[in-house]
Design a protein around this nucleic acid. Structure first.
Lengths: 361, 361
DNA sequence: GTGAAAGCGCTAACAT
DNA sequence: ATGTTAGCGCTTTCAC
């Protein structure tokens, strides 16, 4: 009581991490009270609270959540597994998710699968071992083991981006098949007939595949077929878009429309076409997919389909906050006609509402 | 007392998570043996190992790392805090980091600060509460509390991207001040004299600020000054680059060089200039910063400085794997002259090595 | 090669 | 409003 100077003078260095007990001793209250103060739970007198907070701050105490999580059987983490960060689409979804989780006490933690199902499985296993409160995973295609793990996780699982397939639990996304079909309809309505597709043939990119399938269906429904297609492997870049375009047009000079698997290669293709003085959109129409911001800065506005990325992230966040399961949420994916699809030759309702929405982005 | 009927018959579902004990019972060995098998430690007979693995797989057991980490006082996580995912620079650093960590057993976990020091502090606190084995944080500027936390973390801390300032522990990056100076030198050597700067004035973007400072120093060293500058707030986009350029050139039509704070707005500016038929690089020179892939797809190759993003990530990974502390690693940042800086008017050594390196990207 | 005991740092549940 | 007790599920350490 009298002279109790902590004799720990000149502690050399290998500083053990501080524990609740240290704060408890410094503040002169039980560990339990410290715990309560630090979590803002239960009734604690103002005097005690202030004493505890002061002690904690002075010592530089950082709670050990590992112990806390083990004791409480609760973890404030949401595990998120996406295929890639290089593709701007995913950071935007993550932004929506983070926004949506704000204030919930839940923290997103990200893992990257590189479009590899095996890696995805490994990353999921790793994340599940931390017993998160929820899972977000891109797409509906996973290894059997991954599906089993997810189904058995005992917490809400949200599959995002795509709704074409069977969900494990909840799913929030757009229909890529429908997006492809609708773009085909738009293109045919504008009078284009010799149509080419440019995209990746990465085996793991199921959404691009479904878009192409839907596109071909849509063409068929309008009595048309895909004239030709050109594929690449690896990441998407403006440069890739240019090269693909050059290759495809060299082979098929009389194509009158190019449908790109995404906006980035579409933008590259657009730049290439404009440089060569091709008459876009009259002689040659173009369209991409995603509705990226990038398109706003190009010389001409590329037609695209908005994939509602941010909204998907937010919706997933809402499901997780509310601990909902088994929800299916298909977001509308709107065709943004931009300036690279000519007006329909016949005077049919040109869809002024679409243009209205365009300005909204 | 007698009739106290919580007859927990027919447990409906709230499936308790599996534990080592479950596997232990299924395999007929002690929990300890199961633990050894699952971690691949110690000597276990093949027969036992196989039995344990089979049991674990059949049950779908996923180890609880929370308990494991608490017991072993070791966590295989590397906490990484970056300002933004929207800025392509950071995903590339993360990619380098992930690559570098591969096979080490260490797992990066990402947090985003949105260029807000307060948020950075909060995210760091959150991550430190999981007791990671290492920290990676962008930049050298942090709140006092954050610096204290990092210094007290007791694990290696690597500050990345920037080396201009005082490090807490290790630092890996480029000198943005030097990058600015060198670009100024390059521009002056090419004979440009009426020079404008375009960039963000976001208070949290210290690297952009240092680049500008170095740039002004470099101009001064060459007897020149900055003629004018134009700033924006918010994210970088092609569109922003266009608008900034239009504004600045409207105010200062006789500028002969525009130095952009980054490649994205630089690319927007370049497109704008080319559309208006400005004579780039003779009448007007342009340069950005970062060395993004994006530049490869533009009609003309924008001059820039390579910021060695991926290499920074890999180097940070190496330091963390080796548990090194107190290392300072300044990566060389190379000016890539591209096609938007004209050749020097006087025949002075045009730096063929630079061009050689250019092809290397 | 395998097992038993102790405890990591915290919180739930129940005192008081 | 504050304290006490008993674990959370695993790994460390030491026995056998």
């Amino acid at each position: 009581m009298t002279a109790d100077p902590p004799p720990d003078t000149a502690d050399p260095a290998p500083r053990r991490n501080l524990t609740l007990r240290d704060v408890s001793e410094a503040a002169g209250v039980s560990e339990m009270t410290v715990s309560r103060v630090l979590r803002g739970r239960g009734d604690v007198s103002d005097a005690t609270r202030l004493r505890v907070l002061a002690a904690a701050r002075t010592l530089g105490y950082v709670p050990n959540r590992i112990a806390g999580a083990l004791a409480s059987q609760r973890v404030n983490l949401i595990a998120v597994v996406i295929p890639s960060l290089a593709n701007m689409v995913f950071p935007e979804v993550l932004a929506g998710l983070s926004e949506g989780l704000e204030g919930s006490g839940l923290q997103p933690v990200f893992g990257v699968s590189d479009y590899d199902p095996g890696r995805e499985e490994a990353v999921l296993y790793e994340m599940l071992s931390w017993r998160p409160s929820g899972l977000v995973v891109a797409g509906l295609e996973h290894t059997a083991a991954a599906r089993t793990m997810l189904a058995a996780a005992g917490v809400p699982v949200v599959e995002i981006m795509d709704v074409d397939g069977e969900a494990i639990d909840s799913v929030v996304g757009v229909s890529h098949r429908r997006a492809g079909r609708e773009m085909a309809g738009t293109i045919l309505a504008a009078g284009y007939r010799r149509i080419g597709f440019l995209g990746s043939n990465m085996p793991g990119d199921h959404r691009a595949r479904k878009r192409l399938e839907g596109f071909v269906e849509g063409l068929a429904a309008g009595g048309a077929t895909l004239t030709d297609a050109e594929f690449y492997t690896g990441g998407s870049s403006l440069k890739t878009g240019r090269e693909l375009t050059a290759t495809l047009l060299a082979r098929q000079p009389d194509l009158d429309f190019l449908y790109y698997a995404n906006d980035v290669i579409g933008a590259g293709g657009l730049l290439w076409c404009l440089e060569r003085g091709l008459d876009v959109p009259r002689r040659l129409g173009l369209a991409g997919f995603n509705g990226l911001d990038l398109l706003e800065g190009l010389p001409m506005r590329l037609a695209t389909t908005d994939a509602a990325r941010r909204e998907i992230g937010r919706a997933a966040a809402t499901l997780l906050r509310e601990r909902r399961s088994g929800v299916r949420l298909e977001m509308p994916n709107r065709v943004l006609p931009g300036q690279t699809i000519r007006q329909a030759p016949r005077p049919q309702a040109p869809g002024p509402s679409s243009f209205g929405k365009l300005s909204g982005r």
